[in-house]
């Protein structure tokens, strides 16, 4: 059971890395945004398997949902390039990006030779097991910070997007 679970995790990790690689390598920005959403979805599964279900739900709804929407909206507002520019762009990209897979394979080989044998001694497990209780009772300052951050976001969005609305 143990090794099976591990294999499952590694498969998902591999898929996630693949999705991330595709995000970076693909030519179209739109596909890139979708790749990011896929990466995020894989991350969600991993988080769920690592006993963080609540955060996983947040990740799924906010990161692979909301942020993708923001990206796709931004991409669709910005105009597409002309045909010859696209061709030039593709050649440009190929030159710059084909090093990445090679780099990754090299890093993979190097890291898999490094043995990780020292015993981690970890701190005692916590008593409180409910993240909601932790957030509300032990970390109210973070909640206040979230509120202030959201206000900042509101101000930012009003200021930065206002002109677009008028046009």
């Amino acid at each position: 059971m143990g090794t099976q679970a591990l294999n499952m995790d590694i498969v998902i990790l591999f898929l996630m890395a693949l999705a991330a690689l595709w995000t970076v390598m693909t030519r179209s920005l739109l596909r890139s945004a979708i790749g990011l959403a896929l990466t995020s979805a894989m991350l969600t599964i991993l988080m769920f398997r690592l006993h963080a279900p609540l955060a996983a739900v947040f990740e799924l709804s906010v990161c692979s949902g909301l942020i993708s929407v923001v990206f796709i909206a931004t991409i669709s507002v910005t105009q597409p390039m002309s045909q010859e520019k696209v061709l030039q762009h593709m050649r440009d990209r190929l030159e710059r990006f084909w090093y990445l897979p090679i780099l990754l394979v090299l890093i993979g080989i190097v890291l898999s030779f490094v043995s990780f044998k020292f015993n981690l001694s970890v701190p005692l497990p916590e008593i409180e097991k409910d993240p909601r209780v932790v957030l509300w009772n032990q970390r109210p300052l973070d909640l206040l910070g979230q509120i202030i951050m959201l206000l900042t976001g509101v101000f930012g969005i009003i200021i930065l997007f206002r002109e677009a609305k008028q046009k």
């Binding site: 970390r139 910070g145 930012g156 200021i159």
Partner: peptide
């Protein structure tokens, strides 16, 4: 004023985000 490493990060982001918008104020 915080004495917690993660709360520090939180307020840090607040200050940073506010400065981005302030710089870009005139667009």
């Amino acid at each position: 004023m915080v004495r917690d490493i993660f709360s520090m990060y939180v307020f840090w982001e607040v200050a940073a985000a506010a400065s981005f918008v302030l710089i870009a104020l005139e667009k």
